[in-house]
């Protein structure tokens, strides 16, 4: 049957950025997790009103060293991730492997530092509501780091070993988007958990 058509066979089978569905999916994930973190931060500020001092009397303010080092480390980690991102968009396997590998090392290092950060909180979660709030905030961000570490290592294994398809470069690309989010939200979490207790 002859009929008017719109022939899309010449369109590419792959795309990057906001053109793809998976980019929007990751953006949805970021919106959800961003909202959860923001609400937790608001809850911490709400609980703050119940205290004369923050942290409460008898609890020293948290140590800054590990957390501040992590600000630097996470900021630096953006670079290899960005390189992996760009290489993925050019669909070049070896540069992706190298850059993503370096990003994985950064990811594991930030997790190690996170252990010291928990110790530097100078309180337990069951001491008082202050302790509960800072442990939850730090813990939520740590959960993102763990999830991302699993994702980064799996993706690296896939690019190195797996039957690589073009769409996996898109995965590397949106994985970087998620990593930028994790790095970006660390700044307000750091301010709220580590700096704010020193201002009151």
């Amino acid at each position: 049957m002859r009929r008017p058509v719109l022939d899309v066979s010449a369109l590419p089978p792959i795309a990057y950025g906001s053109r793809t569905t998976i980019w929007w999916g990751v953006l949805g994930l970021i919106a959800i997790e961003g909202a959860a973190l923001a609400l937790t931060a608001v809850a911490a500020l709400y609980l703050r009103q119940n205290f004369m001092t923050w942290p409460p009397y008898g609890t020293p303010p948290p140590g800054l060293a590990a957390a501040t080092a992590n600000v630097v480390l996470l900021a630096l980690s953006v670079w290899p991730m960005y390189v992996a991102d760009r290489a993925a968009q050019r669909e070049r396997r070896l540069p992706v492997i190298i850059a993503l590998g370096i990003a994985c090392v950064f990811n594991v290092a930030t997790l190690a530092l996170r252990g010291f950060e928990f110790a530097a909180l100078n309180c337990w979660w069951d001491d008082h509501a202050y302790g509960s709030a800072v442990w939850l905030l730090l813990g939520m961000h740590a959960a993102h780091l763990v999830a991302s570490a699993i994702e980064n290592v799996l993706l690296l294994a896939l690019v190195v070993k797996g039957p690589l398809e073009r769409k996996h470069f898109v995965d590397v690309h949106v994985n970087a988007l998620y990593w930028y989010f994790i790095v970006a939200v660390w700044v307000p979490v750091y301010v709220l958990v580590f700096l704010a207790p020193r201002w009151s």
Binding site: F51, D126, H128, A129, G131, S132, A133
Partner: peptide, 22 residues
Amino acid sequence: STMLAMDRLVDTHFFNVAEGGD
């Protein structure tokens, strides 16, 4: 609900007025 579960399971104090919760 996470805060509530933690208050009940691991003794956090998000909603425990005695320890600064609300």
